[in-house]
Amino acid sequence: MRIIEVRNKQGVPDVFGQDVRKNIREMGISGIEEVVASEIYGFEDSAGDDELRYIAENILVDSVIQEYCLNGEKQSAGEGRVVIDVFYKKGVTDSVADTVKTAVKDAGIKTDISISTGKRYYLRGSLTEEDVKSVCMKLLANPLVQNYSIRYEEGNKSNA
């Protein structure tokens, strides 16, 4: 699966990230320092990179406030954050995915694309593995309908 990530440009406040941070604090996890939230769109391999860029630029991104990256490019390495991706399980209604398909068709792209939509969260702070798992299970994902994955950017484990 290839992923287009859409996030706010530098200087545009990330209101959702701030909201999630507040909620993590409420759970009693005080080590959390910063949360950045972004939208992710996962594509099965039917579409080519050029097509994906076209879709990102013309359909997914609001150029005044957002930017995108394809497959993790432009990622500033070594920030040492926890990265959590949350997607719906197969068979669960993913209405945004259906809408993207409609929009892709409107834009004249003939390729039949397969897509799922989700959220990505970057967590910075001194968090134990247990903290991270708890945040996933109790706040960011519901295992009944969603899958989540946890990944550590380089340089993180040290402060865990």
């Binding site: 197969k90 068979g91 669960v92 009944l144 899958n147």
Partner: peptide, 12 residues
């Protein structure tokens, strides 16, 4: 593990 248990639904 990848398929919803169907118990709960998300509406559209």
């Amino acid at each position: 593990a990848n398929v919803s248990t169907n118990v709960v639904q998300i509406g559209n």
